[in-house]
Amino acid sequence: MSSERARLTALYGGLLVLAGALLTGLVYLLVQQGLYTSISSAVTTAVPRDPRPPWRSVPTPVASAVPARRIEGVPMNLDEGLAVTKISDLAGEAALNRLLTVSVIVFTVYAVLSIALAWWMAGRVLRPVAVITGLARRLSGANLHERIALDAPPGELKHLADTFDEMLDRIERLVGAQQRFAANAAHELRTPLAVQRAAAEIGLAGNPDADRVAMIRTKLISVADDSEHLVEGLLLLADSEQGLERREPVAVDVLAHAVADGLAEEAAGRGVTVSVRAEPLTVAGDGVLLDRLVHNLVANAVRYNVEDGRVTVRTSGDGFLEVANTGPEVPADTVPQLFEPFRRLQERTHAKGEGAGLGLSIVSAIARAHGAEVTAEANGEGGGLTVRVTFAPDPAP
């Protein structure tokens, strides 16, 4: 920052010194131009003139005579006009020399004060930058909560500091989400490993009979399937966060019908009715990821429902997909948390068919990859959730 302060000091100080030099020079020139005329007029007025012609000279009465002063360098016997000119020249030269001396002294003091003022002003202007730099150097994972909170009048630097604070808010939320994700992922992966180890060490200890071996085998396969689904979900989530490598027109309304048909048997087994009201909706994106997005939304709506519940899938030509369901009441303050990995409305029980809690987080990641926005709203006393994915309009060709 010191180099920037030196540059600003040179800029501000140079401008102030230049302005002072121009002002001093202008004053000197203006005084120089009008000085001789002013002195000549003053001297001519002060020196008495004889109204009579020189050839008719008459002795001046003693009572009216003006005492003569001898002026150095001006003989008393010179013509009156020459005397006035000589006096004016000498007086003007003396006045200009005095003016020049005073101007140089004043300009020197002004230049020193200007540079000092410019240095102070540059430091004052750059103070927020120094605060931002110091905070950026101190930041680490342990003090992401610190903020600049710059107390300054509105301006560019105030806006910069506020923007930096907003960026820190986003980073803190992101780091917190990543830390929770890592902890939850470790927990979710450790649980099936512990079950497999216990089944192998306890269930197969001694001389187990065939039925016991078959039971343990079924349990191990079930746990392996859950682990495989979890790993697939994590990989899909990671792929979704990377963005899209290709885009092609995808009919979301067709996907909605296909997904609803694919989940019809599971919905019937849970006593849930799925209805589709699909207007034509085509977006540019990845067909596989969009199919997963629709599938996760409808599957969550079916699984987290009540007996004789309903699921409504709707697409609109206005550019959105909406999935609404009946179900348990969802507190409004917990709705945003459902889009975080491994977050559920209720604690996981590891029951058969229970997901890992990645469904809505995958939906959110796929939506971001497609430039879409996901919003959710609790249905209130009736229970359930309404999730809407709003796709951005395709840019004009």
Rank of each mutant, 00 (worst) to 15 (best):
A46G: 05
E232M: 02
A301V: 08
S88F: 00
E279T: 10
A68N: 04
G233K: 01
A251T: 05
T85Q: 13
V223W: 11
V62I: 10
R5I: 15
N305F: 03
L244M: 13
A152P: 00
G271N: 02
Q196M: 15
V17P: 02
E377Y: 03
E228S: 14
A185Y: 11
R303F: 01
K158I: 04
F320K: 02
A6E: 14
F107M: 14
A186D: 13
L8A: 08
L157D: 12
T24D: 05
R310I: 00
N379I: 05
A6N: 11
L16T: 01
Q33C: 00
L96D: 06
W120D: 12
N77D: 11
S114G: 13
V109I: 09
M167G: 07
G73Q: 03
P208R: 11
V231N: 06
R70P: 02
E146C: 00
L230T: 03
H229Y: 12
G287H: 10
A267W: 09
L35V: 09
A251M: 02
F391I: 04
V112C: 05
P192D: 10
Q337W: 04
G285K: 06
R5N: 08
A194D: 07
A251Y: 03
V109N: 00
L160P: 10
L139S: 04
R124H: 11
T60N: 07
N300A: 04
V276M: 05
V213A: 07
L18A: 15
V109F: 05
F320Y: 15
S316E: 10
P54L: 10
N184R: 10
G92K: 10
P54S: 06
A264G: 05
N184Y: 08
A65K: 13
P67I: 03
D79T: 04
L35Y: 07
S40V: 07
E265L: 10
V323E: 03
G357F: 11
R314K: 13
R303V: 07
V283W: 02
E4V: 03
T133R: 14
R277F: 03
Q178V: 07
L234T: 08
S41N: 09
V231L: 15
L385G: 11
N379R: 15
H295F: 10
A136K: 09
G92P: 02
G384F: 08
L11A: 12
S38E: 02
A258T: 09
S3D: 11
A118M: 02
G382F: 06
I39F: 09
N300T: 06
R180Y: 05
V252M: 07
A10D: 10
A376W: 06
A267I: 06
V272L: 10
G317I: 02
S41E: 09
R127Q: 07
